[in-house]
Design a protein around this nucleic acid. Structure first.
Length: 593
RNA sequence: GCGCCCGUAGCUCAGGUGGAUAGAGCAACGGACUUCUAAUCCGUAGGCCGGAGGUUCGAGUCCUCCCGGGCGCGCCA
């Protein structure tokens, strides 16, 4: 029933060398095998002999020789050679490679083990705000988070992706205040009235999006305006019925808009909780924190000190209640952790949030641990860098405003369309199919261009470069997959079926099998580091290995039927890995292009 | 001021726990198409890895200092 966890090729090689090192009395960890940096010398390498030299007080070269003798296995190793001070270079037999490829082909999970101990993982990403248009600042959080959701879920964890909507706090008070100024006669503002209120919202989404920047700017500039907005916020939080009714309208309008935007982007959430959902829990949480002596009064506010003796920097306390009695961002975040641990039974909580908020999360995590409300859950802030324009400043529209996600998606699709026209791609397909392909190409370009960067680094948005059909782009990978699909269709027409994969007969074929065997390491690196760019890099390497093979070996013209069937099996396997990888990146592959 | 992140080819970026000659894409130059979709592939050229010390048999990677850039630092979210 429960099958033994599959072991990757690299793990198998490492196990052999680890045993050999252990046999010499050295640390088995020194047996770590890596893909060779010098392909002309070997496919893999092990450098442990040099490190072992000190502990064993022996010449590294001697150690390497002894390891090679101990590891010897003619079925697995085609070649074990020594070089330099004690490098061990490894080549694997073609028979072993073929066996590995067939094992992958036979495994629905492509050799990827399910987590031995599945965890409940809550991933907090997206984080759009009600009434504010979603802009490119939310883009990275959304697509990185989405990719991590897909990855952790594939690895067998119980994943809950939570949008953590910004639907509470000052911004809502600002909007209510702004509407009271613009339309003071609405029933929501009549203190004598406690409802019922109209079912239809008094404003449209467009109105809200115009109101927010206006009122935010005035609050920033004018003390009185700010006070009025704060007053509205406090009254909302105290439950004034008209304000709650308005808030509900604003929230409903925004969610409808957000769902449409995220759908276009291909991002889904399991949970649509918002900050407001934790609001009722806050008094009880504060009472607990007070009772436990964790929260203390300071200068009229309620705080949790979180500094530690070994801090190298000043660590401000978490502000639970401001001196005006209002709750804060951090308060909501703590209440959220409390709920995720108590009700969702989270083992791991990942926050895909802008790197500028790292101090905030440091404080909140400390407070959550100190107070015990995090239980045993592990919390991690997964910071990401900014998407910049060509000027190196955060990406803006030509007019200098924030780029709305909806417009960005349209831009990407249009640009993809333009490229397709230039390259004469899909021009004879039906218009609806062509449009669908353009959307997929545009989204693939956007997601790949974003995810290929190391998460924490800033990157430059360059739509022309992203949508190119050449090089490290989403389109390149779609093309690789589509070419395989095309071959498999042609083969099916000729009644040719994929067969057992034979030992590779040429360098391109061998390199392709070797690339295929490295899938587990790519997924593991991406998951361990929570860095999807490893998936991007591996997908490109695999695509390139495929293209080389494709150029060198003409499948449909192959005369040897067994070899032809083997090649069909091989490219089927490549397609399955590409489908998995692109799927984890949230990239959809069209039937044809 | 204190703290965090970053500086690698003309441009955009990779570089597990320190390992051999620092890689890729784009751009440049030269090749391979009666195409299983050339959106591809092969080759050439391009580098004092910001600078200076140090640890080590070995440093892009670890430590210290400096230069240059980004960001953050109690009642915003």
């Amino acid at each position: 029933m429960s099958q033994p966890a599959p072991i990757s090729l690299l793990e198998e090689l490492t196990a052999r060398f680890a045993a050999a090192f252990a046999g010499l009395g050295a640390d088995p960890a020194l047996g770590q095998v890596a893909v060779s940096q010098r392909p002309e010398l070997g496919q893999f390498q092990c450098n442990g002999a040099m490190s072992a030299s000190k502990a064993l007080k022996r010449n590294p070269r001697e150690i390497a020789e002894a390891v090679v003798v101990a590891a010897r296995d003619e079925a697995l190793f085609a070649e074990l050679t020594l070089a330099g001070p004690g490098f061990i270079n490894v080549r694997v037999t073609d028979a072993a490679l073929a066996a590995r490829a067939n094992a992958l082909a036979a495994d629905p999970r492509l050799g990827i083990a399910r987590a031995a101990v599945p965890q409940t993982v809550v991933i907090d990403y997206g984080g759009p705000n009600v009434a504010k248009p979603m802009h490119v600042g939310h883009l990275r959080s959304s697509i990185i988070g989405d990719s991590l959701v897909r990855l952790f879920r594939f690895l067998g964890h119980d994943v809950k992706g939570d949008i953590h909507l910004g639907d509470w706090g000052t911004q809502m008070g600002m909007l209510i205040y702004e509407l009271s100024r613009l339309q003071p006669n609405l029933p929501y503002f009549d203190p004598a009235l406690a409802g019922p209120y109209p079912a239809e919202p008094p404003v449209t989404m467009e109105d809200l999006q115009a109101m927010y920047p206006a009122v935010a700017a005035r609050c920033k500039a004018d003390e009185d305006e700010r006070r009025a907005a704060t007053q509205a916020t406090v009254e909302l939080q105290q439950g004034r019925p008209g304000y709650r009714a308005l808030w509900q309208h604003f929230r409903d309008l925004s969610i409808a808009e957000l769902k449409a935007d995220f759908h276009r982007l291909g991002v889904d959430f399991d949970l649509w909780y918002g900050e407001s959902d934790y609001e009722p829990d806050i008094p009880a949480m504060i009472a607990e924190l007070r009772a436990a002596g964790v929260a203390i009064e300071d200068a009229g506010a309620l705080i949790i000190p979180v500094e530690q003796p070994d801090d190298k920097k000043p660590m401000p306390p978490v502000m639970l209640l401001k001196s005006d009695g209002g709750a804060n961002y951090a308060t909501t975040d703590l209440a959220t952790i409390r709920q995720r641990v108590r009700d969702l039974h989270a083992d791991l909580i990942l926050y895909v949030v802008d790197k500028r908020q790292s101090l905030h999360f440091e404080q909140v995590f400390r407070a959550a641990r100190k107070s015990g409300l995090a239980g045993n859950a592990v919390m991690e802030h997964l910071p990401f860098g900014t998407m910049n324009g060509a000027d190196g400043r955060p990406f803006k529209t030509r007019e200098g405003g924030v780029m709305r996600l909806k417009d960005l998606i349209a831009m990407m699709t249009d640009e993809a369309h333009k490229r397709m026209l230039e390259a004469n791609v899909a021009q004879d397909y039906p218009g609806a199919e062509r449009a669908a392909i353009a959307h997929k190409v545009g989204m693939a370009a956007l997601r790949y261009a974003d995810l290929m960067n190391v998460r924490t680094a800033d990157y430059v948005f360059d739509i022309e470069r992203f949508t190119r059909f050449e090089g490290r782009t989403g389109s390149y990978l779609l093309y690789a997959a589509v070419r395989i699909q095309s071959i498999l269709r042609k083969a099916a027409e000729r009644q040719l079926a994929p067969g057992t994969i034979l030992p590779p007969a040429c360098d391109e074929e061998r390199a392709l099998v070797l690339a295929l065997a490295q899938l587990p390491e790519a997924l593991r690196a991406a998951a361990d580091q929570r860095m999807p760019h490893h998936l991007c890099a591996f997908a490109f390497d695999l695509g390139q290995a495929l293209s080389r093979f494709y150029n060198a070996c003409h499948i449909m013209d192959e005369k040897d039927a067994a070899r032809q069937a083997s090649w069909l099996g091989l490219v089927t396997l490549v397609l399955r890995e590409l489908e998995l990888l692109l799927g984890l990146l949230g990239i959809e592959i069209p039937e044809r292009m």
